[in-house]
Amino acid sequence: MVSFLLIILASFVFIGVVVRTKSIASGRKGPGVMQPMKDIIRLWRKGAVYSKTSSFIFQMAPTIYLASILLAIAMIPHGKLPGIISFDGDFVMFAYILAFGKFWMIISALDTGSSFEGMGASREALYSMLVEPAFFIIMGSFALFTGYTSFYDIFSTLNYGPYISYLIGLLATFVLVLIAMIENSRMPVDDPKTHLELTMIHEVMILDNSGFDLGNIFYATSLKFSMYGALIANLFLGAVPLPISIPSFFIIQFVFAVAVGILESFMARFRMSHNPQFIFILTSVSLLIFFGVLLVLGKFI
């Protein structure tokens, strides 16, 4: 429950921090950190225009997408406190619940019968397929390392382990950051600020969404970012008492947001056709983690 509330709290300012970092990096003052959230709240109160082609799927999808992310967040523990949902193999359900939301977003993009939105849908489907193995290998490595198969057990025992676990944690952080960037269609893979439909992924999928639904989608992005931030934080938090773990949770989220902002400011988007290769790199890095774990455990032949 604690972690759920913390993630919700962090999500309010996450995108704000990213935007602020980007504006400072480009020499502007930039909006306040609450501005993106204010925009979302304004969207929630606005009316909507729906495409004539679209069906009920188009109207339901953003809400289902948000619900899937909320349920996924409920599975994430905080230090020595388990998440609301915790059972053996919960990370499998975590990934599949997120995929459920994505399925709906993809078909909702196709629902408009647009000549652009299918493009984003197609890319989103492919990239999320390519990024999934990396996540599962990381979790598999941790399962191997700790001998447990749930988020809570893995994260709480990971930190009692030797210092080498922090090294693995560092590599895993790298992969998780990039997974978050890809899943949220951010910089090296996709540029949310581009104004050409042909080069967008996520943004082009939601061209026709407006009002409440668009607010949901934007908020889902913030939530997803802070969800991955919480996963990263869990790699390092360990069983420290709450007065220490809560501030460190926010510090990690803040550092993550700043890192995202800096990454976005100083990196150019890859060519679309190079994205799959890039995403495959994540799988290889996570395989490295896996073999690292095998070495540490002395099971490597």
Binding site: G47, V49, S51, T53, T112, S114, F116, L207, F212, N216
Partner: peptide
Amino acid sequence: RHRVTNRLVSQKDITWG
């Protein structure tokens, strides 16, 4: 969503092209 959007205006238009 149903409760919220019921109060709001909504209109139908062609897909953005």
